[in-house]
Design a protein around this nucleic acid. Structure first.
Lengths: 210, 210, 210, 210
DNA sequence: CATGAATGAGGTTTCATTCAT
DNA sequence: TATGAATGAAACCTCATTCAT
């Protein structure tokens, strides 16, 4: 992260050829491996390239700088989680509040626990890369999906669906992270599902009441 | 010729003389200034010492390494926020659930917004330093206080106060962070107070119901 | 934020391209120059790289750390002296004891005086780098050659050739070093040749007698 | 060994008072302890002072700089060994060559093995401090004693006793060091006594013959 | 396009030495 | 005299990035 920070984070060129796609993918995979195996501090461009089986030069053919790689990494992960949540939202249109909450909480927990290690490991890269923005974008995306879903609830209606969704989505992350940090044993996860559902349901009821 | 580096994060030497205390304090203050003004990446020990008006040598007289300083910084901040929350909890023993939630949410938001910039800026140091542990410790502390408070609620009783408190405390952080990230304008903060209170109240009611 | 340092003394990368070979060589030469001109204490990696006309980065591309360079330096020197002695031993197979002693003493003195300055200067690096091991290895090598040679002596036979050789080889170093330290004028060197030969011959006769 | 190297190596003041003597001694002892326990690289003035139970300031009251301490350390050790050898020489005036050699070799080996660890550990300090000079001085001292002894030999007479003594004294060190490095087990030491005696006797006979 | 040797600013940390108290 | 906080030059080493081949 030493020299210039000016360069944009967009990929330097669109991988038109098949080989390019493969290379980019190899680099991203290698980055994850290095991150998980050696930690963020040891995650150097050289090491990543080595692990990916390409030269550092090639690395810079596909990413303008290291930040861009980190951003891509975070982007990919976050947006996959978001996509899942989105799908879950669409699947329960028209259901009851409780049904809705149960569904998306489960989707979220499943997505997170499946790649719990990566999730934790990406914490630092996200922070470095200004992940807030990326996370924000995806949160909004999920927020929109949630808002849309809430509008269809069979047993309640809401006045400020946008704000509600934001709170809902961000509130759920903290407890999840905490439990992941505590070691994520199945029994604890199970209780977390109940509690997060209760958190969401309770909030929505309380918010709807006014 | 380098030397081995075991080095705990504990302070290298407890400041005995008056001069020492001043030095340590100057270093901590300078660290915060540098972090806020130049950002985490530029936060080098040299620069901190310079800003503090002491030599690098003095820095290392009191901190075994850079991590230790970061840890101290995070520790100080987090534990002050925790202390506030703790005091708020004790102040509303015996009140209603709604009263309790309103009080601690406000205390939390006040503590965070007062030093909003620092709060945001410490995010990355915390991540680097394994802040999870520090945050966990303080969360537990607040969690205990919250649990104790909940036991005295005049209008409800709870079966798993520990788990409830954990979820409560960690759930509140995300929305706060998100709003801080969005620029923390007063109007938004005001709405956040309502929503977080609703979140907590709703959760507690929902949890008590079973 | 430092990283752990395990780092063996083995070269970090084997120079493949022509350019690399030149770089490594330039570094080794520069190291010797700095050692001789400025002394061991002033022999920093920066200074060496500077003198070699390369960047510090290049230095660390080929040597994992400073110790490794020192080790390489000592290794090269010691093993060249050893090689010479070895060749001398093979050249006088079957001769008389006196002939043998004269030959290897001369070979040893020649090798040492030719690069007398380097020999003296490498004393400290060797000590720092645990040169004992390197020297030991090469001593053994010479010892073996000497032992083999002794077995072919036309006028004597020995019972413990290994032990004899060890003593012989190590005994010869001290007086040599002492004379080097005294300024190594030709007249003194000449007398040293006689005395060391006498030392060796006398020892062998005395040892054979039993 | 950082700053000025100009300052003399002589003690800054003669310890006139008893307390002073005790302090100097404590420092020297502490230095040895640190050297043996932590190694030369970790042997800092601060650590030595700490171990000695005095402040760094006091350290510099008694030694003008670190080199002076090292020099004193080496001096003390080497001169004690020399004194022993000297006494041994005087004790065998008028004896036969073989008797003489046996005696001084034993004296030397005894002195060295008694403090074998210290002997090895002082190797590096000696090199750093220009121990050559110190060792030279003591070697000369021993050389003189040996020369004087040789003059009284009952069964031989020598033409160049000074040169002979120098070679004798320095020749004996190498094998000793080698054996110490190999682990110094008693059986090996015993054989070393024989071999070194043979080395000396053989040399003297050979030298006397001409 | 790929390679990987080269770069060098800059980071962290040590430690001999001084001097105000 | 003793203390130990403070100093700061300088050492080692890393790693994102470039560019000649």
């Amino acid at each position: 992260m030493k020299r210039t920070q000016v360069a944009s984070l967009n990929p330097r060129k669109l991988p038109a050829q098949v080989r390019s796609v493969a290379t980019v993918d190899a680099i991203l995979q290698a980055a994850i491996q290095v991150l998980l195996a050696d930690g963020f501090e040891k995650m150097s461009t050289t090491r990543i390239a080595e692990r990916a089986g390409v030269s550092v030069g090639s690395f810079y053919q596909y990413f303008p700088n290291k930040r861009a790689l980190l951003a891509a990494l975070v982007q990919r992960h976050v947006s996959e989680v978001a996509a899942r949540a989105e799908r879950a939202c669409q699947a329960v249109q028209g259901a009851t509040i409780r049904e809705m909450c149960k569904t998306i909480v489960n989707a979220f927990i499943d997505a997170k626990t499946e790649r719990a290690d990566l999730s934790r490991a990406l914490y630092l890269p996200a922070a470095v890369v200004g992940g807030a923005a990326i996370v924000k974008a995806q949160s909004d995306r999920v927020g929109n999906a949630v808002a849309a879903m809430l509008q269809t609830a069979s047993d309640a209606s809401f006045e400020q669906p946008k704000l509600l969704s934001l709170v809902l989505v961000t509130a759920v992350v903290g407890p999840m992270q905490a439990v992941l940090e505590m070691g994520a044993n199945p029994e604890l996860i199970a209780r977390l599902r109940q509690q997060l559902t209760a958190l969401c349901v309770g909030y929505l009821i309380e918010a709807a009441r006014r």
